[in-house]
């Protein structure tokens, strides 16, 4: 009799143990964010292009008389929404290359700095055609500068986009980038910049686990002497369709075609 009671008690204990463990919260594995695949067909009525000028290395962009060629090119092609000039560095008190391009192309110029001292500033110039009411930026000294223009993209139905840029040299900048973007990707922020090739994989991995509702694509060339690549970060409602390598004289230019998915 006692033996039967003992068996019942043992069975009850095993049952309770199994029930307790089965009721524990399931372990959730964070697999990060992955954007849904965009439509396979491009809707050309909803695309715009941005010209991104960069040597994709640590050299300053304008080294010779390239400004004349760029001015001619911009004056003769009016199809791009904006023109970005990576490393269009300037000496304080002297004419900035991007301001000169703005003057000669009758456009408005902006500058997103990466560094600053008394005499020299390194950064990315931006040329747009309309007057800009919002040039939104953030400056975290010694860490990260981000900035760009809010303007109307002339799509099938015009859409307001904030076209911003930054330069990433170190993975320590990633948390600052995510903090600055905040919910920005919900408000049509499109970021085109450069990242050092040796940290681009880590950038992709970091954003996957720290940002949502975005698409990220990279463009690198196999040309010797390049240690950087272009990245395009968009909200999930946009997609970078292609980056076409081109040259304006000896100046490398990349035509970035972006589609609004709506």
């Amino acid at each position: 009799m006692k033996n039967i009671q003992f068996k019942y008690i043992a069975l009850l204990l095993v049952g309770i143990t199994c029930f307790t463990f089965s009721c524990k919260d399931p372990v959730v594995v964070d697999e990060g964010y992955e954007a849904p695949a965009p439509p396979s067909e491009i809707n050309n009525r909803n695309t715009f292009t941005v010209e991104f000028y960069s040597r994709l290395n640590e050299e300053t962009l304008f080294q010779d008389n390239e400004i004349d060629l760029v001015v001619n090119h911009i004056n003769n092609t009016t199809t791009s929404l904006a023109y970005l000039f990576d490393r269009s560095d300037a000496f304080i008190g002297q004419t900035s290359p991007v301001v000169e391009i703005g003057w000669r192309t009758r456009t408005k110029s902006f500058f997103v700095q990466n560094t600053l001292n008394e005499s020299f500033v390194q950064g990315t110039g931006m040329i747009v055609r309309p007057i800009i009411n919002v040039f939104e930026g953030a400056a975290i000294p010694d860490t990260l500068f981000v900035g760009g223009c809010t303007l109307m993209a002339p799509l099938g139905n015009p859409v307001v986009v904030a076209l911003i840029t930054c330069k990433l040299d170190d993975k320590m900048q990633f948390p600052a980038l995510v903090k600055i973007l905040g919910d920005g990707l919900k408000t049509n922020k499109i970021m085109i910049g450069t990242v050092k090739q040796n940290i681009s994989a880590e950038m992709k991995e970091y954003l996957k686990y720290h940002l949502k509702d975005f698409r990220l694509s990279f463009y690198a060339t196999n040309t010797a002497g390049k240690n950087r690549e272009i990245f395009i970060l968009t909200p999930v409602s946009f997609v970078a369709r292609e980056v076409v390598s081109n040259n304006i004289g000896n100046l490398p230019m990349y035509q970035c075609k972006i589609e609004y998915l709506n």
Binding site: F91, I92, G93, Q94, T95, S96, V99, E100, G102, W103, K108, S109, F111, I131, N133, F135
Partner: peptide, 15 residues
């Protein structure tokens, strides 16, 4: 912008 070029400064226009 013409003055910005001549003076080596950065311009911002507000309409």
């Amino acid at each position: 912008t013409e003055m910005a070029v001549k003076l080596g400064m950065f311009p911002y226009y507000g309409k």
